[in-house]
Write a protein that binds this DNA or RNA. Structure first.
Lengths: 200, 200
DNA sequence: CTAACCTTGTGACCTTTGTCACTAAATGTT
DNA sequence: AACATTTAGTGACAAAGGTCACAAGGTTAG
């Protein structure tokens, strides 16, 4: 029996995933959590074989949870489940010790198959996803990323400058660089591209 | 037996929701679709009692699907299922003839209860959600909305103008109005605000 | 030491946005 | 028909954004 903890912020989806997993006779959902923090709490009393977690959640993201599990619960494997094929995330997930990476776009049988393989000691990453992660690396510098993030939220140059303790001119240079690197037509476009890749 | 069609773009979530519903002995999932367009296709051969649909999907959104179902399949009820409590959506959904509105944040039993009540002819909307919908109404016109949507995706004035068959000046006027109405500091900010409210 | 490099900043220049006042046509109402 | 109202467009101007060349200061490596 594979004992699984399901971590996902949307209650409906969480319940549905649990229902799906419960249909399989080799799998037992032993705990559910709405975010990383709650999962961390629960892990003090329940030790599942696999922690199946979403990435984007309030309080504590799936990637932070992954880090915690890798360190504090070595017998526990982590499988990441996320919405978009964001190349940036997969890199960080693997670096953090994730054993599986499943897209919410994938068919549901695939999730079950992944869990079973991970329990057998395998590492499971969607092959095409793994490929896409190799292609493009984040070309942005830390400053460019920060500036771009704020630009994407609608802040204007002066506000970004103040927020990052830099001059307006520098911010414009950074954004200009970012726009060029991402082949975007303006800062909004650039922010959109970077966000979609998981670089923001 | 309540016959349900599940429309949701993320395969994993779709499968999980279907699994969840199938656990209830009064409910039968008779069809699944990945977006509005596919659902519309399927409706030509399968007529469920309830179409359970997400809002944000490629090709054809849940709201467009709702409109189609209301017109072409009067015996079919529609229940909207969405991620955020976006006040704007609920208004449009009700105006379009939706019979139920369920948040993905709600517990999964709530979904099943809603489906059963809708089949009995009731209209089910989360009460706190109904309240929040009364507060702020979408102040944007259709043109402003379209222009703003494109602006938020990084298109520049000239491109938006071409796309909507209007002059550049008009687009700038529309965006200017939208920015003023939403108390935003620029088009990006305005798009962000509108999106967060569910008006885009 | 010094050459090569980052990072940050400046100034100039042009393009894109945002605002506003004002037409002009189309539509609706009485 | 006369009227408001809506919808689209224009022109002008100011503000913000984007590009580029270049320079000052700090760090690093040969």
């Amino acid at each position: 029996m594979i004992k699984v903890m399901v971590v996902e912020d949307q209650a409906l989806v969480r319940g549905a995933i649990s229902a799906l997993l419960s249909l399989d006779h080799d799998i037992e959902v032993v705990a559910e959590a709405a975010d990383g923090a709650e999962a961390k709490q629960l892990l003090q009393s329940v030790i599942p074989d696999i922690v199946l977690t979403d990435i984007e959640m309030p309080n504590m993201t799936g990637l932070e949870l992954l880090e915690h599990v890798s360190q504090a619960h070595e017998t526990c494997q982590t499988v990441i489940m996320t919405t978009f094929s964001r190349a940036g995330y997969i890199r960080r997930a693997l670096a953090g010790g994730a054993r599986g990476f499943v897209l919410k776009e994938a068919p549901s049988e695939y999730l079950i198959r992944t869990l079973k393989q991970v329990v057998c000691g395998k590492k499971v990453i969607d092959p095409e996803l793994a490929l896409s992660a190799l292609d493009d690396t984040d070309p942005l510098t830390e400053k460019e990323r920060k500036a771009l993030r704020l630009a994407g939220e609608g802040y204007k140059t002066a506000e970004i400058a103040k927020s990052l303790y830099l001059s307006e001119g520098t911010i414009r240079n950074y954004l200009s660089d970012a726009i060029a690197k991402l082949n975007a037509s303006n800062r909004v476009d650039a922010a959109r591209i970077a966000k979609q890749k998981g670089w923001l």
